[in-house]
Simulated assay, not measured.
Amino acid sequence: MGIFSSSNEQKVRRRLKDYESELNRRGAQALARYEDELESSGRRMRDRVRSAGDDVSKHWNRTRDRLGDEGQRAWAMTEESARDIDRHVHENAWAYIGAGVAVGVVAGVLLGRGKF
């Protein structure tokens, strides 16, 4: 007959089948836990990304508003400075004409000598 009798063989096969069923059950449980954890992690990550996007949007809007305000302020200062310069040049036209002539003469002399 062999080492195992047929009843021993059946017992071994039954144990192997029970062991296989237990492994399948545990594997299915582990897979279900893994899928639940993965889904939960995905939800948390989506919430974090959504929150970060909202924060970035708020900061972007605030920065854009500040830049707009500063741009308008800079433009107003530039216009004011240009008006002041225009008024000053009109009031002291001969001084600016003389300065322009002096700069032109100096540049002409230096260019004529080949210094530049």
Rank of each mutant, 00 (worst) to 15 (best):
M1Y: 12
M1R: 12
M1F: 14
G2I: 11
G2D: 08
I3N: 04
I3V: 10
I3G: 01
F4Q: 03
S6H: 08
S7E: 15
N8S: 05
Q10E: 14
Q10I: 09
R13E: 14
R14Q: 00
K17V: 08
K17E: 14
K17M: 09
D18E: 15
D18S: 11
D18F: 08
Y19I: 12
R26G: 07
A28I: 10
Q29K: 09
A30I: 11
L31R: 05
L31A: 08
L31I: 11
A32E: 07
E37R: 12
L38K: 10
S40P: 00
S40Q: 15
S41W: 02
G42Q: 08
G42H: 05
R44M: 11
M45A: 15
R46Q: 11
R46K: 10
R46M: 12
D47T: 08
R48A: 15
R48P: 00
S51A: 15
S51Y: 13
A52Y: 15
D54R: 15
D54E: 10
D55F: 06
V56K: 05
K58R: 15
N61Y: 09
T63R: 07
T63G: 02
T63D: 05
R64K: 14
R66M: 13
R66K: 13
E70Y: 11
G71A: 06
Q72A: 04
R73K: 12
A76T: 10
T78F: 15
T78V: 14
E79R: 11
E79F: 06
A82N: 03
D84V: 08
D86I: 05
H88M: 10
H90Q: 10
A93N: 02
A93K: 08
Y96K: 00
G98E: 13
A99E: 11
G100T: 04
V101I: 12
A102N: 01
V103A: 11
V103M: 11
G104M: 12
A107Q: 01
A107E: 03
A107H: 02
G108Q: 05
G108A: 12
G108K: 05
L110Q: 03
G112M: 04
R113D: 06
G114S: 02
G114V: 06
K115A: 13
K115E: 08
